[in-house]
Structures are given as structure tokens and as C-alpha cells.
Amino acid sequence: MSFVASRDAVNETHVNPVVNVNANYAAIMPFGFVRNLNNPEIIHNTDRQWFGETRAGAKQYIGELRKKDIKVMIKPQIWVWHGEFTGFIEMKNEDDWKALEESYSSFILEYAELANEVNAEIFCIGTELEKFIENRPEYWNGLIEKIKAKYKGELTYAANWDEFKRTPFWSQLDYIGVDAYFPVSDSKTPTVEDCLKGWEKHKQVIFSLHKKHDKPILFTEYGYRSVDYSGKTPWVSDRSLNQVNLEAQTNTTQALFETFWSEDWFAGGFIWKWFHKHDKVGGPDNFMFTPQNKPVEALLRKEYKNE
């Protein structure tokens, strides 16, 4: 599960629904914030953030998940004001690039230290930062070495679905991480068969990257909204897409399981996204990503049990 940070601490009542759906891993996602795509300052771990977005909050969440034997991936993320895409973060000059590097190192190494402290099974070194990586490859090579000096567990990076083919440092990590919002069907209510066919070309590319680097594939995020055309542009979170279609969400999700879950080179994935107040979210009228209290939750329970 991608376990969403909130204002509040969590307890057993918030973790039990994760256990009940047979999930064995949770991604914990502390946040840093930048003012715009050209601003080098990452604001993080401050008292102005929600508790779950901070280091103390991440540690508290992990402690509660551990009580139920849930394994953990710590996945620090950046939010750009107004929700602009992090893949487009790009500085205008060398001074700003240096400042961004210093700020990002402070952000990510803080959570690498936490990952080591709590013995997190996996640490994700970044999420959807293609322009940053493309422009500053040497920085990233050095950053990976600094992370490895602080944290001894397994490493991944969450590359966007149209980015992962170009990510240059997979050989230095343990998993090829993909945020798997691949387009798989143009249908209003895609069938499982539609989506299986839509996955064929993407699966070949994903498998070829596994073969090239001899690394397992991990879907650092996957999932679909419960809307019409859910398989057409699965990355879109625009609230103007609001025609609820629970069948579309279930079918697209089932096709993803059928395509990947039995492959020995596939490590698994973290569904986007799971909120702590299970009884207050999702449901049959919800058109966003969460599977909670929708038919797709039963599908998850079944598939996760079969792992």
C-alpha cells in the first residue's frame, strides 16, 4: 500500500484494514515542498507540515505498521506548489543547481538515516525527477554512494512510466522502480481483455530492462481511478474526470495483476493510494484512486492473499 501521510498519528485501528486486505508492505511517504519548478529550496521536516509528512510522523507510522508485521519502503517525495509535475523541476543556472543539490541531499539523507534507524526493508531515493537526473547525473551517482554509507538496506528509485527507460543508474540500485501509469485502453469501460492486450508492448519494454540490468521490477506506484476511461491516461488526477466507473477500475487492476504478478522477475507493487481512516474514505461514489470500500478492494484482498 502507498500509505498516505495525514495530520494525525495512527494506531492499530488504522493499520488493521491494511492487514485485512492481506498487504505485506507499506510505502511511507514523508514530503518536501518547493515553491515552483525553478526554485532550489526544498522545505522539509518542519512544524508547518502535517505530522505524517515529517520525520517524527514517518517513524510513528512505521512503528505502528511494524506491530502488525508490515514491511516498509520509505519513499520521500517532493510536492511542487499548485501540483506541478516534479519531472519538470529544472534550474536556470549553475548556482541554483548547486543549491538544489545541497537541499535535496539534506532532504533525502535525513530519510536515509531514518530508514537505517528503523531497519526499513527498502529506501526509495527519489520520485519522478527526470529533468533533475538528466541534467545532473554525476550528482546522482555521488548521492547514491552517500545514501549507501548511511543505509544498508535495499534501494530503488520511482521513475515515471515514461521515464524509466532513460534512468541512468539502475545498475547501482536493487530494484528498477516504476510508477506504472501506462496507458492500456481507450475504452470507456475497458474489459480485462482490452487491458491485457494494451499491456503487451509495455511489458516487453519492462522485461527488456530487467534483462539488461538483471534487476527485479518493482511498481513503486500502480493503480487506477474509478472513472470512465480509467486505462486511457491513468496518471491524470484532474477532478474534472468525475464520472464514477467502478467496473473500469476493477478491470484495469485485474489486468495488471494477470500481466505481472506471477512473473519471477516482478517484485510486486504499492497501490496508490491508501488513507488511514478506512471507514471514512473511498466508497461507491468516489472517483479517485483509492481502492478503499470499492469492489477493487475485494480484488486486492484476493490477489494479495495469493502471493
Rank of each mutant, 00 (worst) to 15 (best):
N119Y: 12
Q49C: 05
A58Q: 11
D214F: 02
S6N: 03
T46Q: 05
N160H: 10
P216R: 00
A9I: 09
V15H: 00
D96F: 09
S106D: 15
T54A: 03
S105V: 10
G269I: 14
Q77V: 15
F88T: 09
N160T: 06
R66P: 00
R48D: 11
V72L: 09
L100D: 08
P183L: 02
H82V: 10
D214M: 09
E307C: 11
E200W: 07
V236F: 06
E221G: 04
D228H: 05
R166K: 14
A23H: 12
T167E: 11
L65K: 03
E247N: 01
V4Y: 10
R239V: 15
P30Q: 01
V21Y: 06
K215M: 13
V4C: 06
K277F: 13
F266Y: 14
Q49R: 01
G223H: 12
N119H: 15
D179S: 12
L246S: 02
R66K: 15
V34D: 07
S2E: 05
S171D: 14
V205H: 04
P168D: 08
D96E: 13
N11F: 03
E121D: 15
I78T: 06
A26D: 09
I125P: 00
N119E: 15
P183S: 08
P76A: 04
A267R: 03
N306I: 05
M73A: 03
G57F: 13
